[in-house]
């Protein structure tokens, strides 16, 4: 393969990773901050793609299409939140219900299962012309700009009074109520924000890949989890800002892994299997590493402590 082709593949994997990372930041809000297993994601991602694609084909500006994708995604988060907080349906079930219902809605938005964006303007094409760089490079810059903006907004928001209340809700809801906050509203708000980001990511993806289809969000939740965990294992956990950037980098790493897998001529229908395996490994490895570290620490401590024992008959050190 030519170096240029390799560079192209690398850069487009990175820019894909960045676009998908916005979805993962949304998943991070529900999964880690709110402690809410939100499966709406698979559908709201598609909702974002569908809204973004249909608006462009109808001649609206690509930027407006992204804004509407964001708003539509917030609406999907509201549906799950309403089912959960106002109708008292469990988190898992309300998000599954929303996901199923949204399947029909997404199909209605698009009108057909697949919507190509061939001879129309997209944010990416416009941006590419505007800065005078060709595709994977311009997508990279645009995606990165959006991701940095989202990270900064999230960092700010979760430092505000409302943001703190949302974080605390995932931590200890009964305390939050005792401190005068309606936890139903904090859960609802978190879901709205999270799914808005997920749909924005779907809208960006549709514009960057040049089509939207009904299957584009399938498995998104799993990819989001994988990304978060890769980010936490490989990158920084120190402070909140670094955690958020860790997710963006985790998403890039994930896409590079997928690109490598594809280069190894793995048929694309097996890709979901690979994703599942990667996630299973990513969930298992941090645990295994911790246990291994503890075992080694115990061994060396035992060695040191038992070394002083003079008793040679049953040799304490050999039990170490």
């Amino acid at each position: 393969m030519s170096p240029e082709a390799l560079l192209n593949i690398g850069v487009s994997a990175i820019s894909q990773g960045i676009i998908w990372s916005i979805m993962s930041l949304g998943v991070y809000i529900t999964y880690r901050l709110l402690n809410f297993a939100d499966l709406t994601v698979d559908a709201s991602f598609t909702t974002g793609g569908a809204v973004s694609a249909i608006m462009i084909t109808q001649g609206y500006s690509p930027i407006l299409a992204l804004i509407c994708a964001l708003i539509a995604g917030m609406g999907t988060g509201f549906i799950t939140g309403f089912l959960n907080t106002r109708m008292n349906i469990s988190a898992l079930l309300s998000s599954i219900l929303a996901q199923i219902g949204l399947y029909s809605i997404n199909l209605r938005i698009m009108g057909k299962p697949n919507l190509p964006l061939l001879r129309v303007e997209t944010t990416f094409k416009n941006f590419s012309e505007w800065i005078g760089l060709r595709d994977p490079f311009s997508s990279l810059i645009l995606g990165f700009t959006v991701a940095v903006a989202v990270v900064c907004i999230l960092y700010w928001f979760f430092g505000t009074e409302i943001g703190c209340a949302i974080r605390a809700t995932g931590d200890n809801p009964s305390m939050v109520r005792a401190l005068g906050v309606n936890t139903k509203n904090t859960v609802l708000l978190g879901l709205i924000l999270a799914n808005g980001l997920v749909a924005l990511s779907g809208g960006l993806l549709a514009q960057s890949q040049g089509f939207a289809d009904m299957g584009m969000g399938t498995g998104a939740i799993v990819i989001g989890l994988a990304t978060i965990i890769i980010g936490e294992v490989l990158f920084f956990k120190k402070n909140f800002m670094l955690r958020l950037f860790g997710i963006v980098f985790g998403s890039i790493v994930y896409r590079i892994i997928i690109a490598i897998v594809l280069q190894m001529k793995v048929p694309s229908q097996d890709l979901k299997l690979f994703t599942a395996i990667i996630v299973a490994l990513a969930l298992w490895i941090p645990n295994a590493l911790d246990q291994n570290r503890a075992r080694r620490a115990r061994k060396s401590a035992n060695k040191e402590l038992f070394a002083g024992d003079q008793d040679t008959n049953n040799g304490g050190a050999s039990h170490a």
Partner: peptide, 23 residues
Amino acid sequence: TAGNMSIAENLAMAARRGKSRGL
């Protein structure tokens, strides 16, 4: 208390009991 938040953050949340929370 909220275990994943700092001492200061917990106190700040408590200081806002009975007040409206904004941005």
